[in-house]
């Protein structure tokens, strides 16, 4: 199911291109914000939760997910180099599964690790806030990577759609329309992460059982469908 060669190519494509800079820029920004808030405000659990929930989980994690998920396959399909992967006796689901693992790993490293560090800076993990958001970021990384990998497989404009989803749906629409929050990776992840926090600083609109089912369903379905799409990938000629 896992092909180390596909993984190596994917990982080098993700981190070797210029867009990889955004993978470093966003976590750096989060750490900067955390340090500034701590410096001006001192340690405060509620403020820590606001920063981690409002910026780390609501904005940074989905954006990193967009770049890692779509970047794991989109550019290859765009420039045609995916031919070299596909003209091989390698099962299509293996290619997708491997790329998913790489995308998840990259998203986790560049979103969950800085989330933990920022939490430690903000309030030294008071009330387990840092750990709760880190767990949420880890869980969200899996679902985002799967969703955006699928997006990268089905459309050439994956980054645009990904950004619209991440910023408009998750951040704006979700906060205005309560029903939309049920269909939000962020809320599902919060339901899981909230279990580890003390008190009720980290809460979700969605119950844990439903959140778990939806997370699993979205990840599995997106991965399965991406494998199917890759099997029928069509390369139109230049003419």
């Amino acid at each position: 199911m896992y092909d180390p060669t596909v993984a190596r190519l994917t990982y080098r494509a993700l981190l070797g291109r210029r867009r990889a800079l955004i993978l470093f820029a966003l976590p750096a920004l989060l750490l900067l914000i955390a340090a500034a808030v701590r410096g001006f405000n001192g340690p405060d659990d509620a403020v820590a939760s606001d920063v981690l929930g409002g910026f780390a989980l609501a904005t940074m994690v989905p954006l990193i997910g967009v770049f890692a998920g779509t970047g794991a396959i989109g550019p290859e399909i765009d420039d045609g180099s995916v031919v070299y992967l596909l003209a091989k006796p390698v099962k299509r689901p293996t290619i997708i599964f491997t790329k998913l693992i790489v995308a998840i790993a990259v998203t986790m490293v560049f979103s969950a690790v800085p989330t933990l560090l920022a939490g430690l800076i903000l309030n030294g993990n008071g009330q387990q806030v840092a750990v709760a958001y880190t767990v949420a970021a880890l869980v969200a990384s899996i679902a985002y990577a799967a969703i955006f990998l699928l997006l990268g497989t089905v459309t050439r404009h994956a980054v645009v759609f990904g950004l619209v989803y991440a910023l408009v749906w998750e951040a704006v629409f979700g906060s205005l329309v309560s029903g939309a929050r049920t269909l939000s990776v962020q809320q599902w992840a919060l339901a899981v992460g909230g279990r580890t926090a003390e008190g009720d600083l980290v809460t979700s609109e969605v119950g844990l059982p439903l959140a778990t089912v939806l997370l699993l369903a979205v990840t599995v379905l997106a991965t399965w469908y991406a494998g199917r799409r890759l099997r029928s990938l069509t390369l139109a000629g230049e003419e």
């Binding site: 420039d79 031919v83 091989k88 230049e238």
Partner: peptide, 22 residues
């Protein structure tokens, strides 16, 4: 939709995209 044929088939595409960073 039969990836097993690539054991017998080699392809040289016209397009230039080919993992330039390698």
């Amino acid at each position: 939709r039969n990836e097993q044929v690539y054991r017998r088939l080699g392809i040289v595409p016209e397009r230039e995209g080919m993992y330039d960073f390698l």
